[in-house]
Design a protein around this nucleic acid. Structure first.
Lengths: 218, 218
DNA sequence: ATCCGCGTTCGTACGTTGTACGAGAACGAT
DNA sequence: ATCGTTCTCGTACAACGTACGAACGCGGAT
């Protein structure tokens, strides 16, 4: 039995990206983690771009499909939450999806299931495309923003906000004059109450799903 | 007067990225375009990451602020459309924003103006943050998706869809069995009617803004 | 004229990356 | 034992970001 395989290579690459960031996924470092020579990887993967595409498709495969027997709104809600979770587990994936040339099978399967859910719910083809686009834009955009934010739940945000305030302390009145609303939000509200990305995501998601329902009823 | 300057370097980098893609923005190629040696750039920019940050902030500066004297919804609508336009002019910018460590002044100004607009419209701080997050997630996520799509307006999409169908022609019944809804949408609807990203964006945007209005009235 | 100092430019060189190429190891079938 | 297939890897090269320090041009002081 061979030591390496496409599967093993991709899994190791994902583990490495999760632990040390996507920028430390180099062919040499990855091979080292697998106890192999760098060039051995090329037997299992045509090149680095294909490696990244493969990683992304595994992330897609971790996303829960909208349950076919459930009411459309809660079905899509579940897959949206599941998508965000997958993208939080693998933050590097958001940035890679934009570079993907050809969508992998897991990606296609998911797209198909979502469209099917919308069609079954009575959306016309045109509206299904529209509804699909809104949801996905929101989900990926949210994940994109989340990546740039300090980690660690509600209290983590509060800590980071207070730290930020301390950083600009000496020129605080300048900052407050230039960006009064930002100061109010970061220095006031978030420093005190924190911010939960998971909750914010779901609130926004419901705004969108309710909006889509209204679109459908017209 | 010196030949180079931070301004000239950043402008040239943006022009290069627009014309030949972000991956061809290397220090050497950029310097060549400016008729300079590679190392000359480092007098005006501390390193490549700072160069990219500077490019992103110029893109932000091209975005129209929400007019302060206008009703909140149409004001935010204008800035959203303006943001998408900027990101379509400079598609590489979406992927760079996620990597930005410190937001530049244009970014801060825009964030501040949007929050101010929401606060003036009567949103509480918490709701303003929420409303802000939904909008921006949608806008950036949409731009992200758009980057991966074939270019060229409604008819361009139709062409691309038909081409896609031709590509998988030989295994068409397999594809249609595996992904029936995708086949219906791409092979049927889009191949015939095309798809306009600009229109889809505005429809989705209105869904979101109307949803936010309802959120505010509670 | 000479010199200095400063703002600006750049040649060379190093370490790191993706990967082309071709040599070899491992092993079941004959 | 020999062969063909499957798998592994050492070497080498081009392209990248950039550290280092030398050199340029030029206005003002001597």
């Amino acid at each position: 039995m061979p030591n390496l395989s496409r599967e093993r290579v991709l899994r190791a690459a994902i583990a490495l990206a999760d632990r040390e960031g996507i920028e430390s996924v180099t062919m040499r470092r990855l091979a080292e983690k697998l106890g192999a020579g760098a060039m051995s990887l090329y037997y299992h993967v045509p090149n680095k771009d294909a490696l990244l595409d493969g990683m992304v498709d595994i992330v897609f495969s971790e996303i829960e499909l909208p349950p076919a027997n459930e009411e459309w709104k809660s079905a899509l809600r579940r897959r949206a939450v599941s998508t965000r979770q997958a993208l939080t587990r693998h933050p590097w994936a958001v940035g890679l999806m934009e570079a993907t040339k050809a969508p992998g099978p897991a990606d296609l399967r998911l797209h198909d299931a979502v469209l099917g859910c919308l069609r079954r719910a009575g959306f016309s083809v045109a509206m299904a495309v529209q509804a699909y686009s809104v949801q996905d834009a929101y989900i990926y955009g949210f994940a994109l923003q989340e990546k740039a934010l300090p980690l660690g739940g509600r209290e983590g945000f509060a800590k980071a906000a207070r730290k930020r305030v301390r950083e600009v302390e000496t020129r605080l009145q300048d900052v407050a004059r230039l960006y009064p609303n930002l100061a109010e939000v970061v220095g006031g509200y978030i420093a005190e109450h924190g911010y939960s990305a998971a909750e914010a995501f779901e609130v926004g998601l419901d705004v969108i799903l309710d909006g889509l329902e209204r679109l459908r009823r017209e």
